[in-house]
Write a protein that binds this DNA or RNA. Sequence first.
DNA 1: TCTGGGGTCCTAGGACCC
DNA 2: TCTGGGGTCCTAGGACCC
Length: 387
Amino acid sequence: MTCFIHADLDAFYASVEQLDHPEYRGKPVIVGGLPGDRRSVVSTASYEARQFGVHSAMPIVQAVKLCPRGIYLRGNMERYREKSAEVMAIFADFSPDLQQLSIDEAFLDITGMEGLLGPSRAIAEKLKERIRRETGLTVSVGIASNKYIAKIASGMSKPDGLWVVPPGGEEDFMRPLPAGKIWGAGSKTQELFKKHGLKTCDDIFRLSLDALTALFGKAFGLFLYKAVRGEGAASFDEDRGSHSMSAERTFPYDLYDEFTIETALFEICQTLIWRLLDDQWQSRTVSIKIRYEDFSTEGARETSPAAVSTLNDLYDRLLHLFHKKYQKGRGVRLIGAGLMNLETAGVQQGELFDSANDKERQLEQTILGINQKFPGAALRRGRTLGE
DNA sequence: TCTGGGGTCCTAGGACCC
DNA sequence: TCTGGGGTCCTAGGACCC
């Protein structure tokens, strides 16, 4: 019988801030933006802040109305990544089979470890204690025979929770839960649930597979059918096939000036090309994203035979896509760009590139190297230098 | 209230080939 | 004269997650 732990750090960013700043402890901490930051949203709210109704993804403007005396912070990703690494290292002590899902949560396969470490509940208690003692953070843990149920179980008694679903008890665990607990069914699906009078997992359980696929589509209908029966989603176990990277910027005010938008696009290109080189990827497919003032969003992408080689190459491709899509006169609130279907940059990489670009590429590699050695140097090329 | 940023996966349709 | 079926690659958009 397989056994999985899902471990999820409680209000992670806010908790790290409270750890580093004792004066924040016991107070509502909201990470994501300062009061007055236009168009920022809450990234994490401490449990004290949640009592005011503040939650993730809420506009900061609204959070300030609910909780005017809260402690508002923009956040420090570098510090959160550092703290996350400490936690993941401890997780790794408990299981060699560790699957990190995001910065603050992971699955641990503890199948067959009971002989070594004791019953699964005791393993989880040890894990929670070590995380608390060595990092000062609390973690909520779910235990089940598959990852999907373990994930839902960890959310049952947050914060500092521990929930065990015994083997064979998966269906009994799921059926009474409100449909809102289904991981993978977001706001659009919740609306559909409501429309069809589906309040609990049991309501969904009573529908046939045919009925579910008719209502929700083939793949998602099957997913729901299995989820309410406590069966794990297979998708966790498979190797993730394609990778992509993207960067985007929402402007505090809508932009109408083409040159200003293009400059932002150029800065995004710089971010992307450094990351591409740094992580040793290559990509033939580039994409842009434009969000207009009314929040309608359009995208375009283009695949070409040759991989992106240089900053200017990337910028040219994106500018071309931008002008294909951009509707003059409409206010632009966001511009973004991405690189998709990333492949590992092989040794033969050079041959794929136009040799005329070689010098430029070498220069960019050099700048990348300097930026890595001296992170403060902030070397930049071209367009944004004159500011 | 007015909606971030960085990802993954799914669907539907078009183009093209055999 | 009109039109099958399967496979692959690509694009646009949407839903969802943290």
